[in-house]
Design a protein around this nucleic acid. Sequence first.
RNA 1: GGCGCCAUAGCCAAGUGGUAAGGCACGGGUCUGCAAAACCCUCAUUCCCCAGUUCAAAUCUGGGUGGCGCCUCCA
Length: 466
Amino acid sequence: MKLYNTLTRQKEEFRPIEGNTVKIYSCGPTVYQYAHIGNMRSYIFMDILRRVLKYNGYQLKHVMNITDVGHLVSDADEGEDKMMKTARETRKSPWEIAEYYTGVFMDHIAELNIEKPEIIPKATEHIDEMLEFVEALVEKGYGYETSDGIYFDIMKFEGYGKLSGLDLEGQKAGARVDVNKEKRHPADFALWKKAPKEHIMQWPSRWGMGYPGWHIECSAMGRKYLGDEFDIHTGGVDHIPVHHENEIAQSEALLGKPAVRWWLHGEFLLVDNGKMSKSLGNTYTVTDLREKGYDPLAFRYMCLNANYRSKLNFTWDGLKAAQVALDRLIEAVVAHKNADPEVKVPDEIVQGFEKEFLEAINDDLNIPKAMAVAWNVARYGTKSQDLYRLLLKMDQVFALDFSKAAEKIKEETPELDPEILELIEQRQQARKEKNWKVADEIRDRLNEMGILLEDTPQGVRWSYKK
RNA sequence: GGCGCCAUAGCCAAGUGGUAAGGCACGGGUCUGCAAAACCCUCAUUCCCCAGUUCAAAUCUGGGUGGCGCCUCCA
């Protein structure tokens, strides 16, 4: 299979470094607020990567960190700690906050059918590893101490900027103001920060009480669980210039060789063609989707319909279209599921579809193309359980609950309150008497109440309007 | 100012040298008392503009135009 490596800016044939196991590190959530659907898109991308690798027969050893130690509000390592800010505002301890938001995050990724990575370490439980990492860097001459912390000296590291194509001179000449005069280069970054007394989260170190810089956790935990060299590192495109550049600098400076083979980055989700931001009030969460009547999997479907390396524009209309499409796809899957077991589809047809599907997912996770194949299977003229099995196989990658949803449709006889049941009964009576006027009036009335009626050959079916 | 991405039907979106996937919406049809839902059919001679390379370009090259992201915490 081929994957696009940000480091080389091209698709490369993927082979694990060692045997059949793929070692992956994914930048995980900072748990001091709700993760929004933009964050979720990244984890859906991470999940698709996992599933495609597994489909290809690989074993996974996958680490995703939980950042439960506060990063700072601004760069240049200044300003208030984010975790502290939330703590102050909610009068809770950082630990309580982290636990709460971690729980919500786990619920949300579960609703999106995002598989949990095998190893999910918390930053606060790996302070020792981070300190060891920092100490080793200082001993090697890559770190230096200032009055407020230990910084990484990027000029000592030759490859700095290779991931993002950063022009350090250009950066220097830019509008950016260097607020920290003790730093040797404006882009030098903190490995360890000395903590002021009021800082809630702090740990002892050889430089006194302090807390880790915001890049070190990924390097330290990745190394602990995956070793000095691992296959894939994922994250959002926003991490390319600073976070991942710094990770590369730290790890490579320490090891004397690259720690990561493939850098994979997921593009942003835009909302109404612009950036998501709290000030615009468009940082929707999975909870928001559900409250508006959408299946979180409709959002997953929406994400699957676009390449992970392209920006995707989120709109409510777009989500609605995705929900309709997903519902119909499931209906089509059910038609195959209920097909006569005697009906066969020629092997070469089934295998042809399967091959097309595999080629798509193995071409840098071309899921939109794979979905097109699934649609062609779903709408194939002959309904057959051969194709149902194929669709279930494809769903190992899509994870759109083909099988579960098919069950659900079968058993759909929800509860209704008696008043509405009575109205439906009255309408049935009117229909029997061919009193269409009354029947239609009742249907309209129910419609206004948000109940949709459908007369099917099997009887009346109702549902809540979306 | 620096770095990077993108531009394909009303909308979302594949395709990166060989003659335009898929989905949503629209229109037509089947079904229905009428609807709804579902299903079937239809829907880009053309890929932002201009020039070039080529037997052949949406795909490559050069130049425009437009949009977006990052450079400040961000997925």
